[in-house]
Structure formats: structure tokens, C-alpha cells
Amino acid sequence: MAIKARHRRFAWIAVGVLALGSATALVLNAFQSNLVFFYTPSQVFANEAPTGRNFRIGGLVEMGSVARSSANVEVKFKVTDNAQTIPVVYHGILPDLFKEGKGVVAQGALSPDGVFVASQVLAKHDENYMPPEAAEALRKAGHPVKPQQEFVDKARYSVQQQ
């Protein structure tokens, strides 16, 4: 069977795209640690987070951990991935969606006493959308909308990698 010119051209494109795709995959894999937007508390405890410079931690705001001071705008809360927990202190205004049991991403640095001093706090919402009544019905039925499972999953994955 004679190979037509257009078959040859197509083969070259396929080989080119494949080579480029693999090269990109390798590069992304090599930069893996620089592409994460935040580290989970488990990763911080496993010493995966950078030391000596600012980084972000992400997780759920632990239930019952938020303490506001009346004197200034200082807020203390704990970030958890259901495996490890890190206390955070922050001076500033919190986003509207900041809530206990919900996702949060804080940027700052770990102080020597293990408290994360945040310079910025962002709320991380999940991909579930439903009317309030439906969420309430789920809660009453004993199946509340799960807080972002991905924090827990990713934390477990990162620990398993050790």
C-alpha cells in the first residue's frame, strides 16, 4: 500500500502533538510543587510547605474555632483537613463566605510557635449549588452537604506519598 502524502503529513502532526504533549507533561510534573496554590495542614506537617517564605494554607475552618477580638479586627481560627490542624491569626476583613466548616485559603507565614500569621484570607467555595431549602432538607435527613471532600482526599494522598 502506497503511503499518500496526506497520510504522511497527518502522521507528522500526530507525532509532533504527542511529543509536545509528553514534554508538557514532564515539565508540569517537574514544577508540580510550584503549581499548587495552597498546602493542606497535613502537607505542612509533612514539611512539604516552603520554609522561610510566605505560602498559603488551605482547608476547612474548624467548627467552633473562630474567635473574634472585640478590641481590634483580629480574628483567630483553625484550619483543618480532618487530619491535621493549624491555628491561624489574621488582622483584617474576612470575605462574606468565610464560615466555620467551609473552605478557606490563607496566605502568610508560619511563626516559630506554630501559629500561621495570615496577611490575606480568601474563602474557597465548593462546586455544589442548590436552593437553601434543599440544603436544609439534606441536613434534616442526616446527609448534610459534605464540606469540600477534596481537602481531605488531597491531604490523605499527600501523606500516602511519604
Binding site: Q32, V105, L122, K124, D126, E127, Y129, M130
Partner: peptide, 19 residues
């Protein structure tokens, strides 16, 4: 990667996560 952006609500592999 860990991103601030949430995951997909609609995908071919999972049931939609919205009303």
C-alpha cells in the same frame, strides 16, 4: 493541583452537583 477555583460541577464521569 490545589487551586482556589472550585472543581467541576458538571462532568461526564460524575452526577451533576447542582439542583
Amino acid at each position: 493541583w490545589n487551586t482556589l477555583h472550585q472543581g467541576a460541577s458538571v462532568s461526564l464521569t460524575a452526577s451533576p452537583k447542582m439542583a
